[in-house]
Design a protein around this nucleic acid. Structure first.
Lengths: 92, 92
DNA sequence: TTGTATTATTTATATATTTAAATAAAGCGG
DNA sequence: CCGCTTTATTTAAATATATAAATAATACAA
């Protein structure tokens, strides 16, 4: 049977968290001017680094973001178009 | 502080379930020809009535759907435009 | 009124998610 | 090499979610 919405719900579930929505917003909007590193994200939010890394891994595992490492830093960016579209619907 | 994404994540979380996505799809697409009652929904899916009712209450509590009762039946319909838009993004 | 159909709620259990601290790993500067 | 910075992972505990059975509530029909 088709139309089981398994993948789709997994995508939504990964996005459906206040912190992760905020992270996606940061990566979409402030990535050009400010940084895209974990550290840059952490400076914006007020939560421990490990928590941020964990959220980033959740997003990465679903293919919503991707990270490119240079030195010790990792620059994350949003690669799933649907995530960006959904964010625009939520905050038009 | 603004932009906490609390409401937005609650909306997504309510939608982020295979069964609930399917229910929303049914209500959006088959509501004209087929029925919009809990029973009509149950005939499409293969899960117990109580489970469907519970999913419907979750969607209703977030204002995603609304139900109008006539007799013993309740006709549900999607009232949140964002939910419909998100579904269209997921299944274009 | 009695029974039947439809939907909602309660209860219990299993599973998943969230969080932060602690620790590990990996690269760079001195 | 040593210490520092940056990021990831593991662990444990708290909280939330999902599921189905059982039960309740309601309206209608006979």
């Amino acid at each position: 049977m088709k139309n089981k919405y398994k993948d789709e719900s997994a995508l939504l579930k990964a996005i459906a968290h206040p912190m992760r929505l905020k992270i996606i917003e940061l990566l979409l909007l402030e990535l050009p001017t400010e940084g895209c590193s974990v550290n840059a994200i952490q400076k914006k939010l007020t939560i421990p680094q490990s928590t941020i890394s964990q959220h980033l891994q959740i997003l990465k595992n679903k293919g919503i973001i991707d990270g490119s490492k240079t030195g010790t830093r990792v620059c994350y960016r949003v690669i799933d178009k649907r995530a960006a579209k959904i964010l625009k619907i939520l905050k038009p």
